[in-house]
């Protein structure tokens, strides 16, 4: 495994009879950003909490740099929990300095880092204010600063973009890209799939405690089912029925959307279309991440 990678290796976790994680595995390499998607309750938060050592796994292992994650490594991870939380009555700078010290920094270094990050995240004016006096957006920035204060070697962020205004989304994206470019493995979960598609090098789709798809956005999109859009105005509604490997998704006024599986031959579909008369459009569309995600979480609903 390349240097500086975070590996989650077949971890399982049960709560009584409920299986939360079933041999979940994922790898984030140095300088890579991984988007972690899945419906609510799929096991994203549990996976992240186990990687952090906040929860213990029943089996499996979390490794960083080829060594099992221990206490020292953990203090080098930057974490943003889904449930945001800091001390509401503590002042911004004091709070960040305190968290820096808890991560093992010297007081002076923690102080410098707290000043640097408040500057960077445009919070300089609010350093002496209690957290609860800040707007929600600014509180989120402090939360990000709290995850970055100790110059983490790994970043694990649970829904970092939820509840952010567009400006804060840009700030957050920029900071995460910078961290990745400095070689830090970044993993974050999100429901905002367009954002994941735009930012992430790789995407992991999780369902019922298992990783069901994992790869670059390109890989995932090309491995998914192919869709054809055909515009043949004179074609009857059922022109494509019966073609091998072809599923008609919609058909309206000569506009037909077809879904092709591996056994289908698109050239044969084209010939069939031409037989009905003129064909004004014949295009292949690749699924967006949203489509892939919808497919992944709806397929085989009762497994």
């Amino acid at each position: 495994m390349p240097e500086g990678a975070l590996e989650i290796d077949r971890i399982s976790k049960r709560y009584g009879d409920v299986v939360a994680l079933d041999e979940m595995s994922l790898t984030v390499r140095s300088g890579e950003m991984l988007g972690f998607v899945g419906s609510n309750g799929a096991g994203k938060t549990t996976t992240m909490r186990i990687a952090l050592g906040v929860l213990a796994a029943d089996s499996g292992q979390v490794r960083y740099d080829d060594a099992p994650v221990d206490r020292m490594t953990r203090s080098r991870i930057g974490y943003m929990p889904e449930e945001r939380g800091l001390y509401p009555k503590m002042k911004v700078l004091e709070q960040l300095r305190y968290l820096g010290e808890l991560h093992g920094m010297e007081r002076a270094a923690a102080d410098r880092a707290a000043n640097w990050w408040t500057e960077r995240l445009e919070l300089s004016e609010r350093r002496g204010d209690q957290l609860q006096k800040l707007s929600l957006g600014n509180q989120q920035r402090v939360q990000l600063a709290a995850a970055l204060i100790h110059d983490p070697a790994v970043l694990i962020l649970d829904e970092p973009f939820s509840g952010l205004d567009p400006v804060a989304v840009e700030v957050m994206s920029t900071v995460l890209r910078e961290m990745r470019d400095r070689g830090v493995p970044v993993v974050f979960s999100s429901h905002q799939l367009e954002l994941v598609q735009r930012l992430c090098d790789r995407v992991g789709i999780v369902r019922r405690g298992r990783m069901i798809a994992d790869g670059t956005v390109e890989e995932l999109r090309s491995s998914g089912p192919v869709r054809l859009n055909v515009h043949a105005p004179e074609a009857p509604a059922d022109w494509a029925e019966g073609l091998p490997g072809v599923n008609v998704e919609s058909s309206e006024n000569g506009h037909t959307t077809l879904r092709l599986d591996d056994t289908a031959d698109d050239q044969r579909v084209l010939r069939a279309a031409l037989e009905t008369g003129p064909v004004h459009e014949f295009s292949r569309t690749r699924p967006s991440l949203t489509d892939l995600f919808r497919d992944a979480v709806t397929e085989e609903p009762d497994e």
Binding site: V54, R74, I77, Y79, P81, E83, G85, Y87, P88, L102
Partner: peptide, 16 residues
């Protein structure tokens, strides 16, 4: 309870 209700406890337990 303050640490629990403000959820800061999860941030803390990620490092201590």
């Amino acid at each position: 309870v303050e640490e629990k209700s403000s959820r800061v406890v999860e941030v803390l337990l990620a490092t201590i």
